[in-house]
Amino acid sequence: MDPQLSLLLNGIVSGLLLGGLYAAAAAGLAIAFGMLDIVNIAHPALMVAGAFLVVVIGTTLGLDPLLVSLLIAPLFYLVGVGIYTFYHHFFERRGEEALQGLAFFFGVMFIVEVGLVMAFGPEQRFLDPDYAFITWRLGEIDLPLRMLVPAVLAMAVVGLLILWLRRSFTGLAIAAVAQDAEALRLMAVDPVKIKRLAFGISVALAAMAGGALVVVQPVEPSSGQIFIGRVFAICIMGGMASLPGMVTAALLFGVVENVTATFYGPSWSPAVAFGWLLLVLAFRPQGLFGKAA
């Protein structure tokens, strides 16, 4: 095969795998930002905190990072419940989520990130499972398990989440709270309780994404910064409240970013994230697949 073409093909395939990681990182935000209208800019920082916890626990107990991330998810659920309770009490209830609420999440992000620096130092941490060094080959195309396994896990979790949101009463209530909290109250469901539960799940998903992140790359306290642009761009491109839209946007994003990195060098890929975000905000704020409001 033409080497240029093979390079492009590999770029697309590993971009799709990278998109799987992005979907994991954006899944929680799609719930918090897309459905609950809570602009949790601390989400990537919480993901990185999850990644650090995974590294520490995984190294001590000799467990697989992805397994550990699923084990710590309940803990992060509780953290999310705590954050939401605080946020609701001080900001949402008073109707001050716009300025003060944003500043609050910015503060949380900052506290998490600087806290990680103080606890672990600014160095990179890693925890490589055994399969991270295996690469499957399909003809010209490389499928590194380091990328494939987290992507598959992410897809499985997001798939389960979509099913749950569509089939269960609570899931439907979460989707409903975004559209009309008052109507939900009339159905004898407490919207605050639903939001608390959903926000907890969203932060638990951040822990899962942290596990996936550890498998893919070494983490450092500031790893979250670069993800802010990505995950928000993906959520907005995906049309905010739609998880399938989010997954599609994440895969597309991974491909574009990876092909850029392949042909122009990896140091340019953050610019892709922002460029996309700005273009989407300027021309299609309803998302790539959404209908105009």
């Binding site: 602009v39 800019i41 670069i226 802010i228 610019a271 994230a273 975000l277 700005l278």
Partner: peptide
């Protein structure tokens, strides 16, 4: 706007 400015610094 806030999200855009957040990313602006990174880019």
């Amino acid at each position: 706007f806030s999200i855009a400015t957040l990313c602006l610094a990174v880019v």
